[in-house]
Design a protein around this nucleic acid. Structure first.
Lengths: 327, 327
DNA sequence: CTGTTAGCGCTTTCAT
DNA sequence: ATGAAAGCGCTAACAG
């Protein structure tokens, strides 16, 4: 073109795909510089059937936990020259399907799924398109997909056990919507811990709704007014715990003296809150970095990639929102 | 093709770009349905020089305020068939430049800028590429760009005045980094209010760093130990206020009896916190919806679009973290 | 090593 | 109203 070379040559120097003589390479580079030329990504995608785009399917970004997760994902992808497509499904399978189709048409190079389950439509989709995918924060028990996650069952088991060990006999659960596998797993952990300590399951002590502060508050307002209220409750997120604490205080209950409240996630606020929130820490940074790594590797290796399901360790962080029952 | 019609015809029915006889249209539609055919977005982009992609340039998504903002943006764009490209600049101009170039190469149809200023490189870029753009949460005083924002100067002025009216004479400011125009404007509002009430500006009372909880805490730990500590402080975000409250309590200071702490944004947590945080409310939903609307309109009208700078009203929300000085 | 050619899958003149 | 053909800007295969 301008530098009296063929477009093919330009392509070759820019992509270092084929050897080019030093002289020519430098000339091309110089002209590229001068014209401030940069190759058109769309045309490139069309020719190569790849886009340097990664889709992130997520219920919504409006949560401290998830936004942090995506923040790190974006950073990792950017480092490797991939751009992040934000796809909020709002827990709506139809939207998820739409997005999946769209992602395919845009030749995305991979997708990270932060929506629940391997659902039928997801399985069907990935059976016919073969786009690298990894579940993050959700585990695929069928091992059809790679995934990184903590062991949600064990995590909630540990939370409940901690309370049990501290003498609590009556423990509530402010869980997530049980359409999420994740929420179900946590429920199971909670139930098993109770069972292991010889305590009967009381359904009236468990609530199932969203992970936000308002629901923690609502649940608390319903539960803590009752005569037979628990002495402790396990929450599905720190935000729910904060809402629950507010409700408790509204009834004049002191936390933790009158009621212990346990969080989940260990967001930064959990530490700053008063009382500090005793919580189950999710290794969010590791979770997201590894999700990105696994996806990138899968993109590189394609056929040869071996699926993995990674389970990272959680921790219990003891702060001030829980205490042993006295008397 | 399969339906013994030319690709041109298919294109025409799918895009309704040219009249097609009813008979043929229906046949095509049926075959499309059967084959579960959907048009390739990349090829389409290449031919049309548009992508149905919108870039969102933002310092980071890891903040309650910003993640909520982006959450709504995504929803609006999705409604209109646009997909959101998440571009975290981490306040780094080089990353911002990289992203801008990338967005251009991907033929994004528009971009919303949540990074500060109209900076030189932004101006230069948009001069030569003519991609619709709108600033959100930042105002362009030169009116070269459309923008939606609140009046940050007035907002902080009002915050300070509220404190002044309540008898405070010594008021601190936990502001943002002054490289942000937004932070500068808020500083000006604070200073002007002080001046209007005949109070001298004491630089040792103002801090300038990030909008997060940790910095609120740090600032508080430095300031509240001093003999000459203020009786009130204006914070640049609710998170900073929460951090400041924690610091105050660590020194045995009661909020608001011993010190008043004022927030900014009115995130949901501000209401749930104890004490409830007196704060300046930003109409976040309106801000983001209008940003999306303005951009979409600009995309539709292109040449004929008339730039706008919208300024939305803020509010002061009185809760429990501030009180009048007694004595 | 480098230029020529074809083609990615769509939209869009231009004929018919 | 519809088909044929060109072209969007790039990469890949094939010559030379």
């Amino acid at each position: 073109m301008r530098a009296n070379v063929s477009p093919a040559t330009v392509s070759r120097v820019l992509n270092q795909s084929k050897p080019v003589s030093k002289a020519v390479r430098e000339k091309v580079l110089k002209v590229v510089e001068e014209l401030n030329f940069n190759p058109n990504a769309v045309a490139r995608s069309l020719a190569m059937k790849e886009s340097k785009l990664i889709g992130v399917l997520i219920p919504g970004i409006d949560s401290v936990f998830l936004s942090k997760f995506v923040n790190i994902l974006e950073e990792e992808f950017f480092k490797h020259n991939y751009t992040t497509l934000l796809c909020n499904t709002r827990c709506d399978d139809d939207i998820e399907k739409d997005y999946l189709r769209l992602l395919k048409d845009k030749y995305v190079d991979g997708v990270v799924l932060m929506t629940s389950h391997p659902k039928p439509h997801q399985i069907e989709f990935f059976e016919q398109v073969d786009i690298p995918a990894v579940f993050a924060g959700h585990t695929d028990p069928t091992k059809q997909f790679s995934s990184v996650n903590i062991n949600n069952y064990q995590a909630m088991y540990d939370a409940a056990r901690y309370l049990l060990e501290n003498g609590h006999q009556r423990i509530g659960l402010f869980g997530g919507p049980f359409i999420y596998r994740q929420a179900m797993e946590r429920l199971s952990g909670y139930r098993q811990a109770l069972a292991d300590y010889g305590i009967g399951y009381d359904e009236s002590l468990v609530f199932a709704n969203d992970y936000d502060i308002e629901h923690g508050y609502e649940n608390g307002m319903k539960l803590f007014r009752r005569e037979d209220k628990p002495t402790a409750v396990c929450c599905v997120s720190d935000m729910v715990a904060i809402g629950a604490i507010k409700a408790a205080e509204e009834y004049g209950l002191r936390v933790p003296e009158d009621i212990s409240i346990m969080g989940f996630d260990d967001i930064r606020l959990a530490k700053a809150y008063r009382p500090g929130i005793t919580t189950i820490r999710q290794p969010i940074k590791e979770l997201s970095v590894q999700a990105a790594e696994m996806l990138l590797q899968q993109i590189r290796q394609k056929e040869n990639y071996i699926k993995e399901t990674r389970v990272l360790a959680h921790d219990i962080i003891v702060r001030g929102s829980c205490m042993a029952v006295t008397g």
